[in-house]
Design a protein around this nucleic acid. Structure first.
Lengths: 186, 186
DNA sequence: GTCTATAAGCAGATAGAC
DNA sequence: GTCTATCTGCTTATAGAC
């Protein structure tokens, strides 16, 4: 892997785990075993440019990942269970959720940087689009599908936060059992 | 209000909005119109001690607030609607959610400071206890009540995050309409 | 109990050699 | 394209006057 890709890969992980301000440039440098010269060659506008690039990388990763899962399963409910199972496995293996979420960045940066807020907003919209498409295939109206998709996104993000706070994967497992109730026609 | 209470009040607000690292000591000083001398007199162990104190203050505020609402309404569903309505009003008035949430602190500090993670974990548990008690009164079994309470907490926290990201109160309103589906016997 | 002045260290960023 | 050395400014925290 070339240096730039490596920087993005490692920085993305760090940002997702510790947030933007929680990660120093020098920490990224150490993890990559490179020096400032290399980093500022690839990202002339520094740390914030790197963050935006990382968010785009997260975008790619999450979107393709979810799409693959959602194509693999017949119904939204099956797909969701498989997806959450993957998150649980990820958490139990690594102690954190490295993919799928960027809430640490959102809650920290939403009030501080408009471009970052916007990028995050678009990413959430994209994820929900995948849910909505599948839900419409399941037979829901477009409006209902949109509401359910939002509920799915919110509860999964919230559950991930509870997993990190309580240091167990239980919250995600519980969500997985309760979500089917949301997938019934109201 | 005495100086210490004022520091706690203002710092709590700032921490909730911008996270821990997002707020500098000097920013707190400016907002309080005091100087370092005063702050370090009241909090000899500096910024982290102040954060813990603020989390305890948030604990008090959230717990009493939710308890009052939950005593006012007959069913969990009514209470939840009233609570979310209050959050929406708060958001539309101030542009942020100043009470009720501390997700910015959680996602940033969970991996960095055990004492902070623990304090947050206890706070979430306390909130869920209130929901569980009401749900049992509604007729749910203790296990089911616990699952639903977790789902409520996760979806509200997630929805707050989406509100901040999208800069609209819609997500909370949508959650308010979808949550009743979770409150039906499965 | 609150002030001013200052310390010590780290942040992000730049310049120029190789 | 990557290195080293350096700069500026900001961070938290301390010391001591009032």
């Amino acid at each position: 892997m070339d240096t730039k890709s490596q920087i993005i890969y490692i920085a993305t992980n760090l940002f997702q785990q510790k947030g933007y301000k929680g990660v120093g440039v020098s920490e990224i440098l150490n993890a990559c075993t490179i020096t400032k010269g290399a980093l500022y060659h690839h990202f002339p506008n520094g740390k914030e440019e790197l963050l935006i690039t990382c968010l785009e990388s997260i975008d790619q990763a999450i979107t393709t990942d979810i799409e693959v899962i959602f194509k693999q399963y017949q119904t939204t409910q099956e797909a969701l269970c498989a997806m959450i199972e993957k998150l649980v496995a990820n958490f139990e293996r690594e102690g954190t959720i490295s993919g799928y979420t960027f809430s640490s960045i959102v809650s920290e940066m939403a009030s501080l940087s408009e471009p970052v807020r916007n990028t995050c907003s678009n990413l959430y919209a994209k994820i929900q689009e995948i849910y909505i498409k599948k839900l419409v295939e399941d037979g829901f109206s477009k409006d209902t599908a949109a509401s359910i998709a939002l509920m799915i996104t919110a509860s999964i993000e919230g559950a991930i936060m509870l997993c990190l706070t309580d240091n167990t994967s239980e919250p995600l497992k519980v969500i997985s059992h309760v979500l089917p109730n949301v997938l019934k026609e109201s």
